[in-house]
Computed example of a mutant assay.
Amino acid sequence: MTLHTNEEQRLLLMGCGGVGGVIAGGLLQGGRDLTIVTRNEKIYRAISANGLRVTTPEGEWNAPATVYTHLDEIEGPFDVVCLVMKGTDVEQAARDVESHLAPEGYAVTFQNGVVEDRVSAILGRERVVGALVGWGATMHAPGVSEMTSRGEIIVGELDGRLTPRVQRLKATLESIGPVTASPNIYGVLWSKLTLNCATSATGAVTGQLLGEMLRRNAGRRLALAIMSEAVDVAEAHGISLEPVGGTLDVYQLYLPPERRGGGWGLDLVLKHAIMLAVGTKFRRLKSSMLQSIERGRPAEIDFLNGYVAERGQEEGVPTPVNAALTAMVREVEAGTRNISPDNLEELLHC
C-alpha cells in the first residue's frame, strides 16, 4: 500500500487543547480529511455540538469536525497521526495508535521537550517525524482555541533526509500557517529544549512569571547555566543547534563551566542583555509546567530538564543544575516543597 496523495490522506489528530485545536482547525479549514480524538469529555461535547472555533492573527472561523473519545470507536487505517498531547501522555498514545497506522503511515510529534526517541522505541524510528510549533496558543474554553503569537511549524525526518513524505507533510500543514522542512530537526528541537529548560521548570518552582524571574540577576544567571548545560549535552551527542525562531542563536548565551558560578565580565553583558530582552518581551508568560502542577496534572519535567540530565549521564557530561531542578520539581509535585522564589537561590549553589 502506498502513501496517499495530499487530497486522499486520512489524518488523525490526538489531543485537542490550545495547540491541538489550532492545528485541527487549520487542517479542517484546508479541506483535509481529519478525525479528532480527545479524552476530555467537555472538549468532545463542545466540538460535537458547535464544531471547532479557532482564532488566529489572520482571522476567526468555525469548523465542523468529526470527533471521538476513544480510538476503538474508529476504523483505520490512517496515513498521518498528529500527536498533540502532553509529553507525559505521548508514549501511551503511541501504543494505542500503532494498530491504526497504515502500512506506510507515520506519527508526527508536536510536544514540548524531546519525545521522539521514546515514540520511536514504540512505533519504529522510520514511522516518526519530528515537529516543532513556533507559535503560542491557548484554549479559552472547550473547543475554542486561539493562536496567540505568530511563528512557524518546523518538521523533519529524524535522520535528516528531506523525503517526499516530509515535503508532503509540509504542504498539508501549510493550511495552518508557515511551515519549514528541516534537515536538522534534532538541532531545532534541542534549541527550543534549551530555552524551555530555562523557563518552564524555573517558573514551576518559583511561581513567578518569566518577566519577574529574568528581571533578577540571579534569575538570568540560573537560566544561562541551565541552557549552557543543555548545549554541552547536545554537543556530546553530536547535535548542532539551530537558531531559535531563525534568529536567536543559543550559542551566544553559552557559558563555559568555570563561568557558571558567578562573577562578571564584558562577555556577560550581551548575554544578560539578551535575557533581559526575552524577559521583557514575554514578561507575562506563565510556565506551562506551573499551570500543570496547579491543575493537579503531571509535570513534563522528564521531557525537559530531566531529559537533559539523563542524556548528559549517558555521555558523562555534568548537569548539576538541570538535575537539581528536576529533583526540585518532583518535590513540588509530591507536596514536600513549597513553590517559592527562594528556590531559585538554592539552585544557584548547585
Rank of each mutant, 00 (worst) to 15 (best):
L255I: 06
A107D: 01
I301G: 04
P142V: 07
R39W: 13
R284G: 05
T56V: 05
A198F: 00
V231R: 08
V269D: 14
V133K: 01
A141N: 05
V114N: 11
L28R: 01
E310K: 13
W264V: 07
G187P: 11
A218H: 11
H272F: 11
L28D: 04
L162W: 10
R95E: 01
A323V: 11
E235V: 13
L224Q: 12
T336K: 00
G18A: 06
E157A: 00
G105Y: 00
G316M: 12
A181P: 03
K170I: 09
L268H: 12
T69G: 06
V269E: 15
G312N: 10
S288W: 09
I153H: 00
E331C: 01
P298L: 06
D72F: 02
V90F: 05
N322C: 13
G211Y: 15
G265A: 08
G296A: 00
P256R: 02
E126W: 07
L189M: 14
L12Q: 14
A121G: 07
I43N: 05
I122T: 03
A63W: 03
R283P: 05
M1H: 12
V84M: 13
W61R: 04
G245N: 06
S287W: 06
L276K: 10
W264H: 07
E60H: 04
V166R: 03
A24F: 08
T109R: 10
P257T: 08
A107G: 05
D302T: 15
E126V: 04
I23K: 06
V90H: 05
V67C: 02
N184Y: 14
L173I: 09
V84L: 14
G203W: 12
E104H: 15
R168N: 09
A273P: 07
R337F: 02
G238P: 15
E75V: 01
G316V: 09
M139P: 06
R127K: 15
V54K: 00
K170V: 08
K170A: 14
V179I: 08
V188H: 05
Q167N: 14
A93N: 11
L222S: 12
R45G: 02
E314Q: 12
L12M: 13
